[in-house]
């Protein structure tokens, strides 16, 4: 039975794994960003990892498979680290976002209630003022224009 051994010493699979790890890390960072997390630090790290992956790809194209494998593996490890950080950051951002939402909602409800009560008192005062003004008015006989 023939035994097939990859000519690139597993470099292509290592690069493929690194690629997947980096994509997963980016998607996790994107999710964290969507819930309002500050991802600037993670983007810097992703750029460092992306640089490593690009170096691995170039080493592979030039037939330097051992360098490609070593860089791709380093890339996978770092990308997994970034993904973990992104997930933690997302959790924190979600919790903070919920706090901010409830805080805002409470303030809005209190402000609206105070405003409506104030408006009700103004309306009540205005109604009395309007009635008083109406009572003070003297009836006048209008001149018929046709006469």
């Amino acid at each position: 039975m023939p035994l097939f051994v990859s000519a690139d010493d597993g470099a292509s699979s290592a690069i493929s794994e690194a690629n997947d790890a980096l994509r997963r890390a980016f998607e996790a960072v994107l999710e964290a960003e969507r819930v309002g997390a500050n991802v600037s630090g993670l983007i810097v790290k992703l750029n460092e990892v992306g640089g490593l992956l690009a170096e691995a790809e170039i080493a592979y194209k030039n037939g330097n498979f051992s360098e490609a494998v070593s860089k791709a593996k380093e890339c996978s490890g770092l990308a997994d680290g970034v993904m973990d950080e992104a997930l933690t950051l997302k959790g924190k951002a979600l919790a903070m976002g919920q706090n901010i939402f409830w805080q805002n909602l409470s303030i809005t409800l209190v402000e609206s209630a105070v405003f409506l009560i104030f408006l009700f008192f103004v309306w009540d005062w205005f109604k009395r003022f309007y009635s008083k003004k109406l009572m003070k008015m003297k009836p006048e006989v209008a001149v018929d224009a046709e006469d």
């Binding site: 901010i100 805002n104 909602l105 303030i107 809005t108 609206s112 405003f115 409506l116 408006l119």
Partner: peptide, 12 residues
């Protein structure tokens, strides 16, 4: 007035 007071929450 209510819409103005609710705008910070609505923006979230």
């Amino acid at each position: 007035g209510i819409l103005l007071f609710a705008s910070p929450t609505l923006s979230l």
